[in-house]
């Protein structure tokens, strides 16, 4: 059996030991260093969509922005998890999310970064498309009851009733993963509201 190699990197001026193959995020968490995330889940494949875990790395005198949940914890890497530039990025990301999802989790994070009221307006979809529900249902439960549809600003999450009606009632495991609370509030009953393919298609329906 191949022995797991150890690597050493520097996070926030602290020397951190990590197993080879770990990401920066995993290495940081093992060392008790906090990096904010919303779409990350240790059991799921990396997704890299919320971008909150963006950190600064430097190598050979060059600084680069990368997402900690994806980038490998390479030997000798120098990482900064906080800087004025990173704060600026996280602040704006949270302000953008808050415009469509004024949920408690987002509000809490936003307050931490000093975002009071978003300067933007958006339809209150209460969903930031972190994909935790979709990925959990597909990867862990392999039930495929929920999925993404559309692209660009029209992208959203929908349930597939043929499957959902048989598996969801007894599962509901994705509810607790949802950072915006959209799932529990709207899917307690039978009605999925805008979480249906029909609703998505109705925005493109044939006209009189």
């Amino acid at each position: 059996m191949k022995k797991v190699q150890k690597v050493t990197l520097t996070i926030n001026k602290r020397e951190v030991r990590a197993k080879e193959g770990m990401t920066i995020l995993e290495a940081a968490r093992d060392a008790g260093i906090h990096i904010p995330t919303l779409c990350y889940h240790e059991k799921l494949a990396t997704y890299g969509a919320c971008r909150l875990c963006t950190v600064e790395i430097s190598r050979n005198g060059r600084t680069q922005l990368v997402t900690a949940c994806v980038y490998p914890a390479d030997d000798g890497l120098v990482v900064k998890t906080d800087s004025p530039r990173l704060t600026k990025i996280r602040k704006m990301l949270l302000e953008l999310m808050l415009a469509s999802s004024p949920a408690k989790t987002i509000q809490g994070l936003a307050q931490q970064y000093g975002v009071a009221k978003p300067r933007f307006e958006a339809k209150k979809t209460n969903c930031i498309l972190c994909g935790l529900c979709v990925r959990y249902c597909n990867e862990i439960k392999q039930a495929n009851a929920i999925g993404f549809v559309g692209r660009g600003t029209e992208r959203r999450v929908v349930f597939f009733p043929e499957i959902a009606s048989t598996v969801c009632a007894s599962c509901r495991e994705c509810f607790s993963l949802c950072p915006t609370g959209k799932l529990p509030s709207e899917t307690d009953g039978v009605c999925f509201d805008d979480l249906t393919l029909e609703d998505f298609l109705s925005t493109k329906q044939a006209k009189v």
């Binding site: 890299g48 969509a49 919320c50 971008r51 990025i89 704006m92 990301l93 953008l96 999310m97 415009a99 469509s100 933007f120 958006a122 930031i128 498309l129 559309g150 692209r151 660009g152 600003t153 029209e154 992208r155």
Partner: peptide
């Protein structure tokens, strides 16, 4: 329209 809509800065940033 052409963004895949996956990551927040691109989707929400472009929207705003």
């Amino acid at each position: 329209e052409e963004s895949c809509g996956k990551c927040i800065p691109c989707r929400e940033g472009i929207r705003q």
